[in-house]
Write a protein that binds this DNA or RNA. Structure first.
Lengths: 136, 136
DNA sequence: GTTAACTTTGCAACTTGGTTGCATCAATTT
DNA sequence: AAATTGATGCAACCAAGTTGCAAAGTTAAC
């Protein structure tokens, strides 16, 4: 069995050809990509199918979405063990020059002392700035 | 001179009637509000005017915007001294039950040790969960 | 192996939030 | 008062995301 196949099945996603393709595209990325980005890597693929594929992946925690404030949601692969719980989350970085959004996998989202009676479910932390590609 | 007038002028915003009205609505809020919310508080006001008013306010740092991932940007008043620099920023909280977005003014955005060659400009940190209104 | 049941895919069309262009109106300046 | 500048309002547009439905593909049952 192909690796992509088992990755999908591990997350209880039926491994169709389309899904394996999308997964492989996602695996190649160094930055998070949007639905539109994904669409453009395929010459001929329906936006809606890709959209639903991403939704399925996200629901099953194969990928996570990042709202970086640019108006288009980005997606990136989760780590094998990720359950998308607060302790699994990492910081994201949006470069205002190159417009790319990176997972800073090594930087966990810092914990916050919420006032009592506030229950935490999820945290979205996006840092904007200039990335190393523009500092060289 | 009215207080709202001077608040506007302090931020170099020409105090028109419309702008004073919008400012007063913003002042009344306990949660951040969207353009659509704002539109509804006025019986008769053009969406575009309100939109541009918010833009002007934001550019001049009278208010700040929060992208809470709901698909509509929210706005809230800045503190008097706010320059919207990283050290001025606070955490925001989106309640998944009541759908309101609150400024947690007392909780500064925690500082993050970025890898070298990453320059920080801004941070958006939104915590999702359930707010006190639903814990009573 | 054929039929039935279910899932995925693809097309069209729509919704919503945000945005721009342009004409009009108000206010400030000379 | 005429001229310049800025604010407002209407219409129309744009992009991202989303839904409905039919066609194609897959799986299961007989």
């Amino acid at each position: 069995m192909k690796e992509s196949e088992s990755k999908l099945e591990n997350r209880n996603i039926k491994p169709t050809a389309m899904r394996e393709l999308v997964l492989s595209v996602l695996s190649e990325q160094t930055a998070a990509i949007s639905l539109a980005d994904l669409e453009q890597t395929f010459e001929k693929a329906d936006k809606v199918t890709l959209y639903r594929t991403l939704k399925t992946f996200e629901e099953n925690k194969l990928i996570h979405s990042i709202d970086d404030g640019t108006g288009s949601v980005k997606y990136a692969l989760c780590k094998e063990t990720c359950q998308c719980h607060p302790e699994d989350l990492h910081v994201h970085f949006l470069c205002t020059k190159c417009k790319k959004t990176y997972c800073l996998n090594d930087i966990p989202v810092p914990s916050v002392n919420l006032p009592t009676r506030f229950t935490l479910e999820n945290i979205n932390m996006v840092i904007k700035g200039i990335c190393s590609n523009f500092h060289r």
